[in-house]
């Protein structure tokens, strides 16, 4: 046996096949995309330079970020109230609410997106009802704009926002809140000084989850934005399938990957990510 082999733990032999599979099927394509972004159509940083050459690409990136931030803020805020209500109501109501939440979680994104079109479109249920009642004279433009995209995305993201918050709130020791009251704190003082800080890991987890999922959103912006709200994912697909500029598509994909990794890194500076994703804080 040579010196190198002796330093390799035999356990590696067991996980080696899986490791090869992960590298081949996961890391490989990612590296390939990053490689494409600097080689197609010609070697160099030309694709990245395009970001700053016209304002089209920057506008798309900016639209994507704006929509993702707004979606995240609304989903997490609404999700927090829903999770709070679920944790603090009776078991029966909680089961109802959990069922409703999971049902909407399981329904296909296409079905959910098109239902919004039925409800809020120009001739949708809401506009028709309001017109029949004489409350409005022309239909309100809910769809085919950024508002439509936001409504659809927030709706889709709420279950993702609720679940980490629910876990975080359920693991709280209710005696800590009793202690706060006993020491003379009002309900709102207890909430801001005890409850909210203690559920912060859940808020961070749900923010990260929703934001990262939103970044890659494709179906909802495409359908509810009506081609007017162009986000990165849709633009990538156009570059891939229509204009065949794979280099630009790869550049945008690499940019998003870098963005997500940077966000995780920044968060890890502030708190242990293991705590955010369900691990113990101690």
């Amino acid at each position: 046996m040579n010196a190198v082999a002796r330093h390799i733990h035999p356990g590696w032999a067991i996980i080696a096949p899986l490791l090869v599979l992960v590298v081949a099927l996961y890391l490989g394509p990612i590296l390939n995309i990053m490689w494409l972004s600097v080689t197609d159509p010609e070697p160099g940083l030309g694709n990245y330079r395009k970001l700053f050459e016209g304002d089209t690409l920057l506008r798309i990136v900016w639209t994507t970020l704006r929509i993702c931030v707004i979606t995240t803020v609304f989903s997490v805020t609404l999700g927090y109230s829903i999770a709070y209500a679920m944790v603090h109501c009776h078991q029966r109501q909680k089961n109802y609410m959990l069922t409703l939440l999971l049902v909407s979680f399981w329904i296909s994104i296409l079905v959910r997106t098109f239902s919004w079109l039925m409800l809020l479109g120009r001739n949708g249920l809401v506009n028709n009802t309001l017109e029949t009642l004489g409350l409005i004279s022309a239909p309100i433009a809910f769809m085919r704009n950024e508002l439509g995209v936001l409504i659809g995305m927030v709706h889709y993201m709420i279950p993702y926002a609720v679940l980490p918050l629910l876990v975080s709130m359920q693991s709280l020791d209710s005696r800590v809140m009793d202690a706060s009251r006993n020491l003379g704190a009002s309900g709102s003082q207890t909430f801001w000084r005890i409850y909210l800080p203690l559920t912060l890991p859940g808020i961070v987890a749900s923010t990260l989850l929703v934001f990262i999922l939103s970044l890659g959103f494709y179906v909802t912006p495409a359908v509810l934005g009506g081609g007017k709200v162009l986000m990165v994912a849709e633009y990538i697909s156009v570059q891939l399938l229509v204009t065949l500029k794979w280099g630009t598509a790869a550049m945008l994909a690499a940019l998003m990957l870098a963005g997500v990794l940077a966000m995780l890194w920044i968060m890890s500076r502030f708190m242990k990510l293991s705590a955010v994703f369900g691990g113990s804080t101690r």
């Binding site: 020791d173 005696r175 202690a179």
Partner: peptide, 12 residues
């Protein structure tokens, strides 16, 4: 004042 079972200190 109250001393709780398990103390219920504010961990943060």
């Amino acid at each position: 004042g109250m001393v709780f079972q398990g103390y219920a200190l504010f961990p943060h």
